Simulated scan of single mutants.
Amino acid sequence: MAQATTIKGGKVRVLLGTPGALPADPITYAAPCGFTSRSITLTKNLEEVNIPDCEDPDKVDWVGRDATSLSMGVSGEGVLAAESVEDWLDAWESVESVPVKIEWEFPAKTVTWTGYMQVESVESEAPNGQRATLTVSMQSDGEMVRVVAP
């Protein structure tokens, strides 16, 4: 049996995008400094319906499930870094969703999602005598397009 090919946490990246000066300019992505942990949650919302047995209506129904929507959530935590605090605050204050790129970099391929997300929360914890930390949570706003490249 062959061992699984795994990656370390630094190969999972959350990048915020900055639109170019002109509408035709490409978005530039960069990973804000400070995260020491990242979590990506892929969610499929389901609608349930009971499916009866046509020959025995008294039999307990089985539940059928139909997919109704997909969503991606991202959370990260780490130190409250001066280099990125304004990036996070600007994204949180924005009425519009912000461009985001998520990457999982494996040795032979990289899985990338690109789209827009709303920063739903920014939380800072500052215990006396210890470094201040930052926790950020984002939710997709529309489709996150997945591309797998070698």
Rank of each mutant, 00 (worst) to 15 (best):
V14P: 01
G73N: 05
A31Y: 03
T68Y: 00
A82F: 14
D141H: 13
V85C: 13
V119L: 05
V148H: 11
A2P: 12
V60W: 11
D141C: 13
L15H: 03
I40H: 12
K8N: 09
A149T: 15
W92K: 03
D66Q: 13
E77V: 08
Q3W: 07
A91T: 00
D25I: 06
A126Q: 13
L15R: 07
D53C: 07
D66G: 15
S137C: 11
Q139Y: 03
V49Y: 06
A82R: 15
A132Q: 14
T110S: 10
A21D: 14
D141V: 07
V79H: 08
E123P: 01
Y116F: 11
K109I: 07
K8C: 04
A2L: 03
T6L: 09
E143W: 05
T112N: 06
T36A: 15
D53I: 07
T133N: 08
A4K: 13
N50S: 14
V122E: 03
L22F: 12
D56T: 10
K44R: 15
T41I: 07
E83K: 04
W104R: 08
W62S: 15
S121Q: 10
G10L: 02
G17A: 07
V147R: 12
G129I: 03
G115D: 01
W104K: 06
G115M: 01
P150F: 01
S124Q: 14
F106R: 10
M144N: 05
W62E: 15
M144D: 03
A108H: 12
D141P: 04
L89P: 02
A81V: 02
S69Y: 06
V148Q: 14
G73K: 02
S71P: 00
P23Q: 00
F106N: 09
S124C: 12
V119W: 00
M138P: 01
T110E: 08
A2C: 03
G20Y: 09
A91R: 00
L15K: 08
W88Q: 01
L89H: 07
I102W: 00
P52F: 10
K11N: 14
K44N: 14
G9M: 02
V145P: 05
T41V: 08
V122C: 04
P23K: 00
M144E: 03
D61E: 08
A21Q: 11
E103I: 02
G34Q: 05
S84F: 04
A24N: 13
D53G: 07
E96C: 04
D58S: 12
P26G: 09
E77D: 11
R38C: 11
K59Y: 10
D61K: 13
K101I: 01
P99Y: 06
Q139K: 13
S84A: 14
K11S: 14
C54L: 13
N45M: 02
R131G: 15
I40D: 04
L134V: 12
S97H: 03
A132M: 15
T112F: 00
D25W: 10
N128C: 13
V60S: 11
A108T: 10
K59E: 11
L16P: 01
A24D: 15
T110D: 06
A31R: 05
G78V: 04
T112C: 03
T43Q: 04
D90H: 05
S37V: 07
V147I: 13
G129D: 08
V49M: 09
V98W: 01
N128A: 15
V100D: 00
V49K: 12
P99T: 05
Q3T: 06
S140K: 01
P107S: 11
L16I: 00
E86G: 09
S94Q: 06
W104G: 03
L80I: 04
Q130R: 14
A81L: 01
